[in-house]
Amino acid sequence: MTATRVDTELVRRLPKVVLHDHLDGGLRPATVVELAEAIGHTLPTTDPDELAAWYVEAADSGDLVRYIATFEHTLAVMQTREGLLRTAKEYVLDLAADGVVYGEVRYAPELNTRGGLTMREVVETVQEGLAAGMARAVAAGTPVRVGTLLCGMRMFDRVREAAGLAVAFRDAGVVGFDIAGAEDGFPPADHLAAFEYLRRESVPFTIHAGEAHGLPSIRQALQVCGAQRIGHGVRITEDIPDLTAGKLGRLAGWVRDRRIALEMCPTSNLQTGAATSIAEHPITALKDLGFRVTLNTDNRLVSGTTMTREMTLLVEQAGWTAEDLRTVTVNAVKSAFLPFDERSALLRDVVLPGYASALRTSPPA
């Protein structure tokens, strides 16, 4: 695989798996404009291209709190049944167009209740929209499966309620749970009761950690709360004194040796100040050290990105090969919140044959 020339056209054809992608951060700019006009919400601009550029510029602050503030306008248009159905369906179709074969979408239902919907109604509506999108993708010959992660907002008091919905809908498309929001000052252990409940109910969960806060956040997420994956986790490098020597601290060693997946989002991490460049992003060093890193988009609208773009940036700026892209895709399949037999089938029947087919038709380097 390393002898294959990796260009954007090849990357587009590769099957992709994304585990960390927020529904309210991935709307189409034109959809935001149309839905905002329908409800009388004022946007920074009503030109879709200008709005897309505004999102990326506003998010390029180097600060997680300011980054999160850009969600004001997407959330404003996701407070009605119509808005949720449309954005969920389009979310799936946009993944399919990007070559994603399996995705996990996350959102916090409590943030979509300002229009009168209950949290349960929000979940029901989003699942209906996702199902419609998956049916449309199958009909178009670009099938994609999407599982849902429900989020609790770590700075509010409805995390346990959201966890209850994850349990209630686990046979209706919800595959796991997460907490999101401002990390610094809101440690995951504040919501230990919710995580203990999820463990008792055998519902897997990930936790945003190691992005705006360092090793204590990661340690709490894993050793106190029991997370099976870590959202971002870039600051695990603080427990690796020398990335080139590969000597790991005890926490970093635990993460690598227990095969705990790190849901890494390079472009987003640059925007929030968790990384300084694509070339120096920890994902490359951690991959080379044997960590189970996965590649993700985080928020496609806010970061102006896609899985194709994230892969291409790593090829162009960090020297990644087709083998590297295959490695993080396989990592993502292995770490998906799906039953083992379904993960195995996805890998055997879709991802590995898809890579083999794409590489066969690509010219050598």
Rank of each mutant, 00 (worst) to 15 (best):
T2I: 05
L14E: 13
L14D: 06
P15D: 07
V17W: 07
L19P: 00
D21S: 04
L23G: 07
G26N: 08
T31V: 06
V32P: 07
L35C: 05
L35V: 01
E37S: 11
G40F: 07
T46Y: 15
L51M: 14
V56K: 15
D63N: 15
R66V: 08
E82L: 06
E82G: 14
G83K: 15
R86T: 02
R86D: 11
T87Q: 13
T87K: 10
T87E: 08
E90P: 03
V92Q: 08
D94M: 06
G99H: 09
Y102G: 03
Y107G: 04
P109T: 02
E110S: 13
G115C: 06
T118R: 12
R120E: 12
V122W: 11
E124G: 08
G129N: 05
M134I: 00
G147W: 02
T148S: 15
D157E: 13
R160S: 06
A163V: 01
A163T: 03
G164T: 05
L165D: 09
F169I: 03
R170H: 07
D178H: 05
A182C: 06
E183D: 08
D190G: 15
D190V: 11
E201L: 03
S202Q: 13
P204H: 05
P204C: 02
T206G: 06
H208I: 00
G210Y: 08
S217P: 10
I218L: 10
I218N: 10
Q223M: 13
G226L: 04
R229Q: 12
G231N: 05
T237H: 05
T237Y: 09
D239A: 13
I240H: 12
P241N: 13
P241E: 04
A245R: 14
A252S: 10
W254V: 08
V255C: 12
R258L: 12
R259E: 09
M264G: 00
C265Q: 01
S268K: 12
Q271A: 06
K287E: 04
D288V: 02
L289P: 01
L295K: 13
L295I: 00
N296Y: 04
D298T: 03
R309Q: 08
T327F: 11
V330Y: 10
V330Q: 05
N331K: 11
A332P: 01
V333D: 10
F340Y: 14
D349I: 00
D349G: 05
S357Y: 11
A358V: 02
R360G: 15
P363L: 15
P364H: 13
A365I: 04
